[in-house]
Amino acid sequence: MLPTDTEAVLQVRGLTKAFGSNTVLRGIDLVVPRGKVVALIGPSGSGKTTILRSLNGLEMPDAGKVTVGARDASTEQALTVDFGDAAASKKARAAEVAALRDRSAMVFQHYNLFPHKTVLQNVIEGPVQVQKRPRSEVVAEAEKLLARVGLADKRDAYPFELSGGQQQRVGIVRALALKPQLLLFDEPTSALDPELVDDVLAVIKELADEGWTMVIVTHELAFARQTADEVVFMDGGVVVERGPASQVLRNPKEERTQAFVRRLLHEI
């Protein structure tokens, strides 16, 4: 799963979204090269979650183009959905969005594990039921992934028997088992007790080192600095500043970024 080239896995152009009269995204551009990690930061309500949800088809943007690259350029093509193109019928659009969603996987802030399924069942549900891959193969992979995040012995436990940190690691494994092109994390540690945060961040850091392409919404600035290739600061539905983590977090150019980073650092 190591990066072999630097073509973009994700390209977003002019993403726009309003909820009624509340315009939440005002033309977002985003490019994530293969194997790179982008950290999305910004104040509450700035539209970070809405971006991730749009990429995963959980929210229907009003306009903008989203392209997700192919795993293997020789057999697959990059997939583009143009949300501004009103000609597409509702059904055709739903099919496009479903195809787009198949290429990414999301880790939720509140884990959203299936409470009526065991850890293993949570992980294999998508690959077996949706992707129709052979169960034995999927189970073997799932067990390996669970072992990697230190949860081999929890395979038959139910979510309610796990700590928040363990649940979130299952959430990550569930996403990985889908073999996505792109991993999306929405504040993966903000619902956790402080002492459980590091284990989860360590797992994400490992995935970054391994070459997964990721977009991470986070308030953990130290983590973003260590892990992200690029930091994107947004406010009020626009990207205010972007650049290498060291620059945006240490020497932000924009006043709004400076204020935000200062406020977050002081909170800690």
Binding site: N56, G57, L58, A98, R101, D102, A105, M106, F108, H110, N112, L113, F114, E125, G126, Q129, V130, Q131, R174, A175, L178
Partner: peptide, 16 residues
């Protein structure tokens, strides 16, 4: 609602 979203996230249709 997160349960619906998790179902969609792993690729399931509404009915599934």
């Amino acid at each position: 609602r997160g349960q619906w979203e998790a179902g969609h996230m792993i690729g399931m249709s509404r009915n599934q």
